[in-house]
Amino acid sequence: MTNSVARGAGKRERLADAAAKVFHEQGVEKTTIADIARVAEVPVGNVYYYFKTKDQLVQAAIGAHARSLHEILPALEQVATPAERLRALVEGWVGQRDLAARFGCPSGTLATELDKRTDGLDREMAAVMGELLTWIEQQFAAMGRADARELAVALLASYQGISLLTNTFRDPDMMATEGLRLQRWIDSLA
């Protein structure tokens, strides 16, 4: 998803993408349906045709995160080696450092916010993040690492941690520095 919501997409998808964007920038609780409609460039009344409740928009935002992941992973699979794929993943994260400095990690911040609720949407977001964790684990396993799961958790945890710090201190250079360290770490494991 780019900085603005794609205009060519269907209204339902535009609304889902807009919900993901606005929830990331404002949080679920502070976001109104009118905010989402404005970003999606859809009349407010049309939102209710596709989504009856704000919780349905949260679920759609989770789906937008999943769609984004399903676009990124096949592109990464085109990279030659597992170590290079992991380095490319880190480069992608670092490429979003300005956004992280302003709002944190899109998936991580939503997962944290949903954890405070009791409606089960936190588990849906966990499933999306679990897909990424599994993919990272597969890359480490393809590198011949018996400790692939532990390494995958360490890599994803490092990213989530640096996203939090980058946002806390509003310092994108922190993520750039950590990205270089993570790439060296990946190289050392190959």
Results as ranks from 00 to 15, higher is better:
71 E>C: 00
21 K>N: 05
27 G>H: 05
97 R>Y: 09
17 D>T: 03
13 E>C: 01
36 I>R: 07
52 K>M: 05
103 F>Q: 05
46 N>Q: 13
92 G>N: 13
83 A>D: 14
59 Q>M: 08
81 T>L: 05
47 V>N: 04
28 V>A: 07
75 A>Y: 01
33 I>M: 15
106 P>V: 03
37 A>T: 13
76 L>M: 10
21 K>Y: 06
15 L>S: 10
36 I>S: 12
65 H>V: 04
16 A>L: 06
75 A>P: 00
107 S>N: 11
43 P>V: 01
49 Y>D: 02
87 R>P: 01
96 Q>A: 15
45 G>C: 14
94 V>M: 13
46 N>T: 14
33 I>Y: 09
38 R>V: 07
14 R>L: 09
27 G>V: 04
102 R>L: 14
38 R>S: 13
103 F>Y: 15
55 D>Q: 12
97 R>Q: 13
12 R>S: 07
29 E>W: 04
23 F>S: 06
18 A>E: 14
61 A>E: 07
97 R>K: 15
17 D>E: 15
17 D>H: 09
38 R>N: 10
101 A>R: 08
52 K>D: 15
47 V>Q: 05
70 H>V: 00
79 V>H: 00
54 K>H: 10
76 L>N: 03
61 A>C: 05
42 V>P: 07
14 R>N: 04
32 T>N: 13
34 A>C: 07
60 A>Q: 08
19 A>E: 12
106 P>I: 01
33 I>H: 10
91 E>Y: 07
51 F>C: 04
53 T>N: 04
19 A>N: 11
21 K>W: 08
65 H>G: 02
11 K>L: 08
34 A>S: 14
96 Q>G: 09
11 K>S: 08
106 P>M: 04
68 S>E: 03
27 G>N: 06
99 L>H: 15
62 I>S: 01
24 H>Q: 06
77 E>D: 15
85 R>G: 02
7 R>V: 09
71 E>D: 02
9 A>E: 05
95 G>N: 13
45 G>T: 10
89 L>I: 00
61 A>I: 09
68 S>Q: 06
7 R>W: 04
82 P>V: 07
58 V>H: 08
96 Q>D: 12
24 H>V: 03
49 Y>R: 10
73 L>I: 15
72 I>G: 00
64 A>T: 14
21 K>D: 11
66 A>P: 00
60 A>W: 12
76 L>C: 09
67 R>W: 03
107 S>A: 14
104 G>T: 11
55 D>T: 13
98 D>K: 15
14 R>A: 10
40 A>Q: 01
12 R>M: 04
9 A>Q: 08
95 G>S: 11
36 I>G: 08
101 A>H: 13
39 V>N: 01
5 V>K: 03
103 F>K: 05
56 Q>N: 11
85 R>H: 06
86 L>Q: 09
19 A>P: 12
90 V>L: 06
84 E>H: 00
79 V>D: 00
95 G>I: 12
57 L>P: 05
79 V>C: 02
9 A>M: 05
54 K>V: 04
7 R>Y: 02
65 H>K: 11
68 S>L: 01
73 L>D: 02
8 G>W: 08
14 R>C: 13
5 V>Y: 05
